[in-house]
Computed example of a mutant assay.
Amino acid sequence: MDEALLKVESEKVAGAVVLRAEGEVDSYTAELLRDKLSEAFTEGVPVVLDLSGVEFFASVGLSVLVEYHQRGEERGTALRLVSPRGSVLRALKATLLNETLDLYLDLDSALRA
């Protein structure tokens, strides 16, 4: 796994865990995203995943988002996605996940939700 292709930073902000992802989500880097989401979900507060810095998003990334959306539904912990664009938004729309997942235009909107 080449973690240099994906960077995910985490911080607590306004009663939520905010993860900021930058780079590429593919079969090599998806495990890093999964690990960071797993850590965030242990906090018991909403998890906000900022995807505005993601340039490439393979189908394995969709699997990770679905996995953690379902985990959130089971635990009552929201997963909110911020600013999916480009390949991320195209993938979400192609699979109709944009109708299932909670999408927000900016971090403030996601934190207020």
Score class of each variant (00 low, 15 high):
Ala21Glu: 01
Ala21Asn: 01
Ala21Gly: 10
Glu22Arg: 09
Glu22Met: 09
Gly23Tyr: 00
Gly23Asp: 06
Glu24Arg: 13
Val25Tyr: 09
Asp26Gln: 02
Asp26Ile: 01
Asp26Arg: 03
Ser27His: 13
Ser27Trp: 07
Ser27Val: 13
Tyr28Cys: 10
Tyr28Ala: 14
Thr29Gly: 03
Thr29Phe: 00
Thr29Asn: 05
Ala30Val: 14
Ala30Lys: 13
Glu31Ile: 05
Glu31Cys: 08
Glu31Gly: 10
Glu31Met: 11
Leu32Ala: 11
Leu33Arg: 02
Leu33Cys: 01
Arg34Trp: 02
Arg34Tyr: 09
Asp35Thr: 15
Asp35Ala: 15
Asp35Lys: 15
Asp35Leu: 14
Lys36Leu: 04
Lys36Gly: 07
Lys36Glu: 12
Leu37Met: 02
Leu37Gly: 01
Leu37Asp: 03
Leu37Phe: 08
Ser38Gly: 05
Ser38Ala: 14
Ser38Cys: 06
Ser38Leu: 13
Glu39Ala: 12
Ala40Asp: 03
Ala40Ser: 02
Ala40Pro: 00
Ala40Asn: 00
Thr42Met: 08
Glu43Gly: 04
Gly44Leu: 09
Gly44Tyr: 07
Val45Met: 12
Pro46Asn: 08
Pro46Gln: 11
Pro46Phe: 06
Val48Met: 12
Val48Trp: 09
Val48Tyr: 09
Val48Gln: 06
Val48Leu: 12
Leu49Asn: 11
Asp50Lys: 05
Asp50Thr: 03
Leu51Trp: 01
Leu51Cys: 02
Leu51Lys: 03
Leu51Asp: 00
Leu51Arg: 04
Leu51Gln: 02
Leu51Phe: 06
Leu51Val: 10
Ser52Arg: 15
Gly53Met: 11
Gly53Asp: 07
Gly53Leu: 06
Val54Tyr: 02
Phe56Ile: 08
Phe56Asp: 05
Phe56Leu: 12
Phe56Trp: 09
Phe57Val: 08
Phe57Arg: 00
Phe57Met: 07
Ser59Thr: 10
Val60Leu: 09
Gly61Met: 10
Gly61Ser: 03
Leu62Lys: 05
Leu62Trp: 03
Leu65Trp: 04
Leu65Thr: 07
Val66Tyr: 02
Val66Asp: 10
Glu67Leu: 14
Glu67Lys: 15
Glu67Ile: 11
His69Asn: 11
His69Trp: 15
His69Leu: 15
Gln70Asn: 14
Gln70Pro: 04
Arg71Trp: 01
Arg71Leu: 10
